[in-house]
Amino acid sequence: MGVLTACKPPAQTRQHDDAAAQKRGLKLMETKGCGACHEIPGLNWPRGQLGPSLMRFNDTGLIAGYLPNTPVNLAAFIRNAPATKPGSTMPAMPVTVSEAVDMAAYLQGGGRD
C-alpha cells in the first residue's frame, strides 16, 4: 500500500474537470471497441475479459503495473502501449493524441460506476 500511494501522484494533478472531454472519452471508448478486451465503466456491452478491468481506474496506482497513473502517461499508453511499456500485449490503437487524452480523462475522472 505504501508503495502504491508513493507511486500515485496527488489527486489534484490527475483530476480532469472537463466534463465534455470525459463525455467524448466514453463515446470514443465505445466506438473504438475498447470493450472487446476491457470492462469499462458506463459501457454495458461488450465487457471483454481478456484485458484488465478498467473499473475504478482512478484508484489504480500504476498503469499496467508499470507507469505512474498520470494523464500524460495514460494517454500515451492508450495510443501506443507497446512503445510506452515494452512488451505490452495491448496493441497500438488507431486513435489521435486528442482522442487518447479524452479517453484518459474519462478513465481518470472516475467514470460512471
Binding site: T31, K32, G33, C34, G35, A36, C37, P46, R47, G48, Q49, L50, G51, T89, M90, P91, A92, M93, P94
Partner: peptide, 20 residues
Amino acid sequence: ILPNHRGTLTGWIGDSQGIK
C-alpha cells in the same frame, strides 16, 4: 459489431464468447 483493428481482432479471437 466491432470496428476492425488489431485490438478488437485480438479481443475477438481470445474472447469471442464473452463479446458475442
